[in-house]
Design a protein around this nucleic acid. Structure first.
Lengths: 199, 199
DNA sequence: ATTATTCCCTACCATTTGGTAAGAGGTCAA
DNA sequence: TTGACCTCTTACCAAATGGTAGGGAATAAT
């Protein structure tokens, strides 16, 4: 937020560790002491940087949101890309950064109960950007904003859910099966992303 | 599990309260004291019935799994139903029972970190049943188990994710938009469920 | 040289956590 | 009537929780 926001390295390391622990155990399950010790500093050092646990968590979300935006920006820089490609890229990104998917998913779950005080929803710009991309796509020019948002959300849902549940899948099915599912998934996503709107 | 498993009413009430609080705050966020006070009894009374927090949680999962199976069984009783109809029914069910969706989603998230000791995965029969239903569908007869599981998982993912994130959606978009998205969603699901396998 | 600021520490603290110990009151069988 | 459960209670407990208070060392600004 305000301030100069120099990464300060230490701050960055706290955010990294917090991302890991929040992703594994959730907001309530991860303790400040744990996170700080992961970095090799004390809980109070962390409090010095972030103030409260809530604010630390906010910093983590902000960080994730930025990375997702960067990913999309990076993509569009050279070649104009299609919407399905964007979706596949997000999928690949979440595969490479599973921790962030988990934090995001948890945020959606916790959001309702934790006081949504700031009212600031860190992911909104990212979603708006995807919505815009879909709107530019052939059959979607005339689609309503709601239809567009629904499709985008469905795709993100499928992506997050897949990533998040991989561990469970592996416990239920053979790891070969999981592997072939994982490989087949981008194509499935692309199919769905290409599906024209409405019934 | 073992024992006679008489519902015992009190036990049932504990499970109900636990479902609510686990869905709102997750495994770590919900305290035994909170849950018990919700029922109007003491934490120790609850411990008497369930032993530990983990076991209480297990009972909650077991309960949810049973309800989902019942829902599918109820459906198939009179008319043979199509796979898309099953999916839509699950969607309607999760809409009516949002707490359970949330608990399920959280379970997927927590599963990895919490010692998956029992190795018992309460949802497996439910998933197997859906997989079976899809296999009976036209173009899916020859599809691989992995492809089938992938499709089922994608659909369940889209359903859970949608339900779970409704609160967040409402914070981001107008509630009218959310409403129309919600109404459009079953058709989207049916479309996806009808989509033939492979690329 | 001195002040202010940043970063991090030790020392606490009240509260809450999951869980144990021991027993009270009731029901039911022998 | 005795004794064995079952259900639920009060009384504890050690450990962990998020957070405060205050200071020490280094760096930067004056």
């Amino acid at each position: 937020m305000g301030k100069d926001q120099q990464p300060s390295d230490t701050r960055e390391r706290f955010i990294q560790a917090a991302t890991r622990l929040f992703s594994e155990r959730g907001f309530y399950g991860a303790s400040m002491d744990q996170i700080a010790r992961e970095v090799g500093l004390t809980k109070q050092a962390m409090i010095h940087h972030f103030g409260t646990k809530e604010k630390l968590y906010g910093a983590v979300l902000e960080d994730i949101s930025e990375r997702l935006m960067d990913e999309l920006a990076k993509q569009g820089k050279e070649t104009p890309v299609t919407f399905p490609e964007s979706i596949q890229q997000i999928f690949r990104y979440t595969r490479k950064n599973p921790l962030e998917s988990r934090v995001l998913m948890r945020e959606l779950l916790d959001n309702r109960s934790r006081t949504n005080r700031a009212g600031r929803w860190y992911l909104k710009p990212f979603l708006d950007r995807l919505n815009g991309a879909l709107k530019e796509t052939g059959a979607w020019h005339k689609a309503s904003d709601a239809d567009i948002a629904a499709r985008v959300y469905q795709l993100l849902g499928a992506i997050s859910y897949f990533e998040v549940s991989t561990a469970t899948l592996e416990a239920m099915y053979s790891s070969e099966q999981v592997k072939s599912m994982t490989e087949a998934y981008p194509e499935l996503l692309a199919q769905l992303a290409d599906l024209p709107p409405g019934g």
